[in-house]
Every structure is written in C-alpha cells, then in structure tokens.
Simulated assay, not measured.
Amino acid sequence: MPDHSIKGKSVLITGGAKNLGALVARDLAAHGAKAIAIHYNSDATRPDAEKTLAELKAAGVEAVAFQADLTTAAANAKLFADTIAAIGRPDIAINTVGKVLKKPIVETSEDEFDAMFAINAKSAYFFIKEAGLHLKDNGKLLTVVTSLLGAYTPFYSTYAGAKAPVEHFTRAASKEFGARGISVNAIGPGPMDTAFFYGQEASDAVAYHKSAAALSSFSKTGLTDIEDIAPYIRFLVSEGWWMTGQTILVNGGYTTK
C-alpha cells in the first residue's frame, strides 16, 4: 500500500511566499515534509519568499525558492526542472497562483481578459502538465480555484471565468494520471482575509462578504481564514488521496453547487 502521509515527502508550492501558499508550506513542514520548493512571481514578493524560506529552514526542512512568471509553458517546465535539480522529483505539487479582477464586462479590456486567462487558466494548465510529467507515482496534485465557481454574481466574469476551466483540467488530469496513482483535485476557498481580496473590494462589498457565509459569525473576520483552508489542503495531498477529479468549495457556506 502506498504511503500517503506527508512525512518525508518533497513538495512544490507556487505562490508559496505569502498568504495561503506560505501557510501551507509551513503546515506541511510541521507535518513532516522533508523538502519544500516555493515559487514567487515578482521582486516585490522576494522579501516574503526569503522570510518563508528562513522559517522552513528553521523548522529543519530543506527549502529553496524560485522566481518565475508562470504564464508560459516554458516557465512551468523550468520551474519543475529547477525544483527537481534542487530537491528531487516532487511527491506533492500545489498551485495557488491567481489574480482577481472585479469589473463589469462592458468595461473589461482585451488586455485585461488576456492577462486574467493567462494567469488563472493557462498557468494552471501547464503546471498540471508538468506535474503529470514529473510527479512521483502516487503523487498528489492540487490547484486553488475560487468559490465564485458556485456563485451567481456580476463583475467577476474574468476571474471566475478563467478559474472555471481548471475544473475540467482537474477532471481530465485525474483520469490521465490515475494509472500512476496520482490524485488530482481543486479547492475553492471563499473570499479570504488577505490583501488578495481587499485590493478589489469597496467597503460596502467587504461588509457584504463578511456576512454572506452561513458560518460568518464564527470566523475571526467573517471571511474565510487561511488557517481554515490549510487543513483541507493537507488532507487532499495526503490521506485524502482517494478523492480525485473533484473541485471542492470550502467557504463556510458562502456558495454551493
């Protein structure tokens, strides 16, 4: 029977410098991961990456960080090649990369549309491709999407729309990679208490989102706290291996399908 624990495993996390990605890196380190590679996008995020890297090393984990814009197939291929050179083939690959845009359809430019689909859909597709090529047998592959995939709402057409294809990428990959024991899933948090959320929202919208989930009154912020998502990610990339091809919305009752 394959070992589905975290202990001794090698992990690659995109967007692992801060927010949810960094928390997941620290969480997997605390549960016994042997080596973790974190990716970050820009020079502005480098200090966060260095801080997270130091925390992982202090926890006794072999840790490395790589900077890349993952909106090309070549960049994803290089990220996996660099990771393998540094820590070996990963057992677990987690993609948290995303960009949100809140804007009416009639005001959205072609450049904005292209950028949103490059970041949210294209980068996810080629990350999944490289994971399929390079993950160890019985590996785990997870993509972070959004609970807006279960919403009936205006203004997020390019964000939710660009995350929506990942549902089918996930289903297809789970079928294609299943013969090697690789499980493939996507997880859709509700609006999270991070700068990723607040940068797009006016105060009235923030107030709405903080009260929209069925369990809002039991959250520290009313929003989805990243601390409530990390355990689900840990489960899906370990003992939860029998679940595959699924998109799971984890949001306190914010949206459902």
Rank of each mutant, 00 (worst) to 15 (best):
K57F: 01
D69M: 11
P191H: 10
D228L: 07
H39S: 07
A124K: 12
I182H: 14
I229A: 01
V64Q: 06
I128H: 08
L141E: 06
K257R: 14
R234D: 00
R26E: 15
E110D: 04
F218E: 11
T194E: 11
T153N: 09
K136V: 02
F218H: 08
A186P: 06
Q67S: 04
Y232H: 07
K7N: 12
K57A: 06
D48W: 05
A202T: 11
G32I: 12
R26L: 14
W242Q: 14
N95L: 11
Q246P: 01
Y198H: 09
A212L: 15
I87V: 13
V24C: 09
E112G: 01
N251H: 05
L12P: 08
G222P: 08
G199F: 06
G60N: 10
G8M: 10
G60R: 11
A85M: 12
G8C: 07
L223G: 04
A75G: 02
I105G: 00
A230V: 07
A118S: 03
K18Q: 12
K102Q: 11
A65E: 11
G245A: 06
G188W: 10
A164K: 14
D204I: 13
V24D: 02
M116A: 03
A75R: 14
I6K: 07
A54Q: 14
E176P: 06
A202D: 15
F177K: 13
G21I: 12
A118W: 03
K9T: 01
V24A: 08
D193S: 08
P90N: 07
V145D: 02
S42V: 09
T72V: 03
A131F: 02
A124W: 07
G190M: 13
R89S: 08
T71K: 05
I13D: 04
K129P: 00
